[in-house]
Design a binder for these strands. Structure first.
Lengths: 297, 297
DNA sequence: TCACGGCGTTTTGTTTATCGAAACAGATGC
DNA sequence: GCATCTGTTTCGATAAACAAAACGCCGTGA
């Protein structure tokens, strides 16, 4: 009954040229199509311009802090003005976009509650814990999930302090320079980690960033040994971050606490990590779906 | 600099035939297009099949509790299997959908954090308050926003009790039979309320449902007078619900508490309403959020 | 007052990408 | 073996996009 998935890898984002080689792994059946694995020609075979444009349109609107005019949109997507107009008209009809008083477009209400079930469950479970951790530590706490070869901040509880680490919910960062990324990668099979890193160039974000696959593998060993991952000024010069993986879910996810280095010293790291591990275990083990009280009967 | 929006009304959802008349109000400029106002012929002029199909596909996947196969999808959207395949392939490439081990499709991670800024801000502010209210009352609490001519549950804190009112985040209910809907409608200009009701038939959901526009208008007067709205078994036979509007935001929104009638009597309604009003005032007035300061210069 | 340029909206014929029916291949059940 | 369920691929028919231009409307500045 259950069919086997022909081939599975993580699709690539808006970078068509970042998938150089085609057949790096044996394909079980035949030339199974996969958005990421495909050669440029194969990719063009299935790729649908209309769909891609809808996606781009929504992404552009998401990334923009303020509403955009029709002209701004059609120029940033590089599509005819008339076409963009019709797209937006249809999207508005379905509430995926809406218009402000000036007629400018922004995302509509059609997206509320739209995300995969498993993620939503994890988010709902994690949210109160993130807030509690934030209150305990006074620092920004995050829930990250592997998305492609990046880690996505799906939930954030920000520190109330004026000097703080800021994470934007929904944004993404590379695996190799973040604690969340390391914690997640350390739980993946080695082969998959190699795959995820292939398409990435490990460019130094600070003076401490890991810039070689060998060093990253070694770092993952350390992570596995000590049970938590640290980003010690590797993503932001003055930031420090600790993360612990959440096991037992379908999703490759991790929790983290991030703070300015000046008030989050390396001495405190293991303490916070231990607390993170407790919470992660709660999130993993909790059978009750959402609430902490699981007895009930 | 700021252009005026030619004409503004709320777009209609998947019901093309529910917009009978075309020019019920004077149009400032000329025949300004609007997804909702358009006649069926006008509508077809701008409507884009590709865009509409992307939207339907995402909606179907959202509504489905579990992953769907290609065939299930192409049958429920009524589009060719091959086309659905290509659409999904492209959506997967952009992380709007993903596939489980069996190759079945579900929503991907591309949506995380994708919603209009104002809504997200309101949601983030309201969430802890909803949870606090839930803990205080022991009952389900909701944040609702006007979406088209329906009210959308954008945030829900569910009661822990086994017998409880259940709201699905992201789902929508009519205005005329819900406390949230009444509370929101009571704050809108009378003309807009009439417009919103035009396309709706007030069918009785229970024996207590309001079924005439006149009765609804009278009810809104009551709501304005007492400062809160009540749904007394008008949506669900055995449910009772109180709501208070949130003012001071761009969005027409309201908070509510809903519970089974047997343990939420009419005597308690004003007490809960008063508490809701406090919280609503907090949400409206709270400067700590980000942008309430309009003085500046 | 007027022309100017920018905007959103509509139209046109031509080019191009997309669609849909049907066939194809692998897996499973009888 | 045959029937039938998948997901994939093909190719003539079709619907959409393109470019370019025009429209009405606005705010601006001469």
């Amino acid at each position: 009954m259950p069919r086997r998935r022909p081939a599975g890898r993580n699709p690539d984002d808006l970078d068509p040229e970042s998938t150089p080689e085609a057949g790096d792994e044996h394909l079980d059946i035949h030339d199974a199509p996969d958005p990421a694995t495909a050669t440029p020609e194969q990719a063009r075979k299935y790729n649908n311009r209309s769909v891609e444009r809808v996606v781009s349109m929504l992404n552009v609107l998401q990334e923009s802090t303020e509403p955009m005019s029709l002209v701004e949109i059609h120029r940033s997507i590089r599509m005819a003005k008339a076409t963009a107009f019709r797209y937006l008209w249809t999207l508005e009809k379905h509430r995926y976009v809406e218009r402000d008083a000036g007629g400018r477009y922004r995302l509509g209400l059609g997206f509320v509650g739209m995300q995969s079930r498993d993620l939503e469950v994890l988010q709902d479970r994690a949210r109160p814990w993130l807030e509690r951790l934030r209150d305990e530590t006074g620092e920004t706490t995050n829930l990250g999930v592997l998305d492609g070869n990046l880690v996505r901040y799906v939930e954030v509880a920000e520190s109330p302090r004026t000097v703080r680490m800021v994470s934007v919910r929904g944004s993404r960062d590379p695996l190799y320079c973040t604690a969340l990324g390391k914690a997640i990668a350390a739980q993946l099979p080695a082969g998959q980690v190699a795959e995820l890193l292939e398409q990435v160039d490990l460019k130094p974000r600070t003076g401490h960033t890991i810039t070689s696959a060998e060093a990253f593998d070694a770092e993952l060993d350390t992570v596995r040994r000590q049970g938590y991952a640290v980003d010690d000024g590797e993503n932001e010069e003055d930031g420090r971050c600790v993360a612990v993986a959440i096991l037992g879910t379908r999703l490759p996810a991790a929790l983290s606490v991030s703070a300015p280095s000046v008030r989050f010293t390396m001495d405190e790291v293991p303490v916070v990590a231990a607390r993170l591990a407790e919470v992660a275990a709660h999130l993993a083990g909790e059978p009750g779906g959402h609430r902490t009280d699981q007895a009930g009967g």
